[in-house]
Amino acid sequence: MIRKETEKKISKDQAKAAALISAIICITASALAFTGHINGWLGAGIVVVAFPVFVLSLFTALRESTKDGDYPFVGY
């Protein structure tokens, strides 16, 4: 089976947006669970799903740019 080699990368902006959205979901869910508006286990479930997304998208947003940067100064 021959597969097409497509280079698709998530852009940093997309990753930032995902990180922001999942962070908002996490905070909202845990706050609502804390104040008793939703069940504790429901809030925990939402956080458990959204938190890993937050972590990964945050790290993806932090990652090195894919463009070639300046070459570092390597010696005298």
């Binding site: 504790g40 479930g45 938190f51 890993p52 997304v53 972590v55 990964l56």
Partner: peptide, 20 residues
């Protein structure tokens, strides 16, 4: 990719179960 969030998610869930 999916295996990484799975690792975080299961232990976050375990943490909740432990603390409740």
């Amino acid at each position: 990719v999916a295996i990484v969030p799975a690792v975080i998610a299961i232990w976050a869930g375990a943490l909740y179960v432990l603390f409740t």
